[in-house]
């Protein structure tokens, strides 16, 4: 078998592919195939060559090629080759699934950034479509961040959100009341008409959240509040001094 393959290599490769690239791929495969051919545990040994071949040609080209080899070569181990192909494809599929899971992680990290904007001020811009899963992840991340940084104000900017459904709306309301329970204030900015519509229909308690038209006015408000806060702090220290004496 090995000698037959090597001696007919040129002819086989011509029949298998037209383009040089693919010809080279088949040639490499056939050489490797000839090497392991006839040895025990053929399927295991074929896995690596097949997997390499699959990286270079399409699945269709592969199956056409195997069919051709099956016809042209006597005793071609079609069954073992197909077993190896199925396992190689299965392995590739698993790799893709892992990659998808990784990308999903990256996406969720990227789509819910939390920015430390100022001392005691966090900014959480929400971008893209919110589903309940993402909304919950965001809520968890934001709350942990607030607890760690002891931020006093959180600006949630929803300019990048085009739609909110009722479930997500409820999650947002819950997130805001949770932020309040931690002792921080929430400023909501960038609400589009459709979102305003949903929020009102949901009966959101607007007293709980401070709403500003855009990020600019939110910042102005925050800084104004913040400097007021420092003045108070100073007067408090004075009061404390008197108490001590």
């Amino acid at each position: 078998m090995k000698d037959v393959v090597i001696s007919r290599l040129g002819e086989l490769v011509e029949g298998l592919a037209k383009k040089d690239e693919q010809k080279k791929a088949w040639e490499d495969f056939l050489v490797e195939f000839a090497e392991v051919c006839g040895k025990s545990d053929l399927k295991e040994k074929l896995k690596a060559p097949i997997s390499n071949l699959l990286d270079r040609i399409s699945e269709k080209e592969l199956s056409d090629g195997i069919e051709l080899l099956h016809e042209k070569l006597d005793n071609f181990p079609t069954v073992d080759v197909y077993k190896a192909i199925i396992e190689a494809l299965g392995k590739k599929n698993d790799e893709y699934l892992v990659k998808i899971a990784e990308l999903r992680d990256v996406l969720s990290e990227l789509s819910t950034p939390i920015i430390h904007l100022w001392q005691d001020v966090l900014l959480a811009p929400v971008i893209g479509t919110l589903d309940s899963q993402r909304a919950q992840n965001m809520a968890e991340k934001l709350l942990e961040n607030i607890a760690d940084t002891r931020a006093k104000v959180v600006i949630v900017d929803v300019t990048g959100v085009s739609m909110i459904d009722t479930i997500v709306g409820e999650f947002l309301i819950e997130m805001f009341s949770a932020v309040k329970l931690l002792g921080s204030d929430v400023i909501l900015t960038g609400i589009k008409p459709e979102i305003a519509h949903t929020l009102v229909k949901l009966g959101i308690d607007f007293n709980m959240v401070i709403i500003k038209r855009d990020l600019e006015s939110a910042l102005k408000y925050t800084i104004g509040k913040f400097s007021k806060g420092t003045e108070k702090k100073q007067s408090n220290t004075k009061r404390g001094d008197i108490d001590e004496n």
Binding site: A139, E140, A147, A178, L181, L182
Partner: peptide, 23 residues
Amino acid sequence: IQPQVALTLAQMGIKLKDVFTAN
């Protein structure tokens, strides 16, 4: 209040009346 406790209370719809909160 632990962040996950705050989330749980908020989701249950519990409001702490007569109480101020600080982080």
